[in-house]
């Protein structure tokens, strides 16, 4: 029973200050930002490129560099340990195609968390048309973490491996860069670090669970963010999606969640008639798709992206057909 309503909301007009590093906040606001990002503890912390905005108690709007998200030194999992997997878990993902509108929030959030460049995407958004008369749909494509992963069996050094918790990981400390796994994956889920990247030199112990820091000449891919699940959080793409397209969870406990709603995995795939992509290849993926029936958004909403990204779909037969008809989106 609210007694009084002095002020619980209001407006604030602000000049936007942009500060270099977190220590800048301390200087402006006279506060320290806690132990995890305390500048004194990591004096050499370089700009990571990731920004966050904060309001200081005296009303200054600041944008600061945020320490890498994938930074859990207290829970560091060594390459050796990360071969085992999280006990008693069987991770699965369910992607509801009817809700995806190519907003690309999952892609971007994943890129930030894994220190990827603009063109490196663990999650790709495909524009798939099943057959000529079918309406195309947007298909977010992570690594499928197959139960019988073609990539794992061909690896000559065991740099990529299948864990008990369903996750297929890469140990880039072990990878010799032969790229055989890239050619073996029927889903093209794997990519390669072709050129050096400043983020490779980041001072942080490498863990296959975080996939950072990367290293030149090795293979990379979606890792299902085991570091996040260990910390009781959802993978970055799931957290990033504003539409709740992506559900993630544990098949053992039969629960998946997209952050908003939590559902029984078995019921979700039963009621939604879930399918797995290219089932006939026998790879037994752990990513399920709910068909793009009764869509929440028209296809065209997916073209509400910048021109560069839009151009990436120019070679899709559907788009070319549209262009011929001169009604391209």
């Amino acid at each position: 029973m609210e007694k009084d309503n002095h002020k619980k909301s209001g407006k604030l007009r602000r000049k936007f200050l942009k500060l270099g590093i977190l220590s800048g906040v301390s200087a402006v606001a006279g506060v320290s930002l806690g132990s995890n990002t305390d500048p004194a503890e990591e004096p050499d912390k370089e700009e990571t490129g990731e920004k966050m905005k904060l309001l200081t108690p005296d009303g200054k709007l600041v944008e600061v560099d945020k320490a890498s998200v994938n930074n859990y030194p207290e829970a560091y999992i060594s390459p050796e340990e990360s071969r085992k997997g999280i006990p008693d878990r069987k991770f699965v993902m369910v992607i509801d195609l009817s809700k995806c509108k190519n907003a690309r929030a999952c892609v971007e959030k994943c890129q930030k968390a894994h220190n990827l460049t603009y063109y490196q995407e663990f999650m790709k958004i495909q524009l798939i048309q099943d057959h000529e008369d079918g309406e195309p749909y947007w298909l977010p494509k992570p690594c499928f973490h197959c139960d019988y992963p073609p990539c794992v069996k061909v690896c000559p050094t065991g740099a990529t491996f299948k864990r008990d918790d369903n996750i297929v990981l890469i140990d880039t400390d072990r990878c010799i860069g032969c790229k055989f796994c890239v050619t073996s994956c029927p889903y093209s889920a794997r990519q390669f670090n072709w050129s050096p990247n400043p983020s490779f030199d980041e001072e942080q112990p490498y863990s296959p669970e975080t996939s950072v820091p990367g290293s030149l000449g090795t293979v990379i891919k979606c890792d299902f963010c085991p570091d996040m699940t260990r910390a009781g959080k959802l993978p970055h793409c799931v957290q990033g999606c504003p539409m709740g397209v992506i559900y993630f969870g544990d098949k053992n406990e039969d629960i998946v969640t997209n952050g908003d709603e939590t559902l029984r995995f078995s019921e979700l795939i039963k009621d939604g008639a879930a399918f797995r992509y290219l089932e006939d290849l026998g790879t037994a993926p752990n990513v399920y798709y709910l068909p793009a029936a009764n869509r929440q958004f028209p296809l065209e909403r997916g073209f509400d992206v910048n021109d560069e990204v839009k151009a990436r779909y120019d070679n899709v037969p559907y788009i070319q057909k549209m262009k011929k008809k001169d009604i391209a989106p």
């Binding site: 009084d4 604030l12 005296d58 009303g59």
Partner: peptide
């Protein structure tokens, strides 16, 4: 404080 007004709720 500063430019930020006071807020209160019960």
């Amino acid at each position: 404080s500063g430019d930020l007004d006071s807020f209160e709720e019960s």
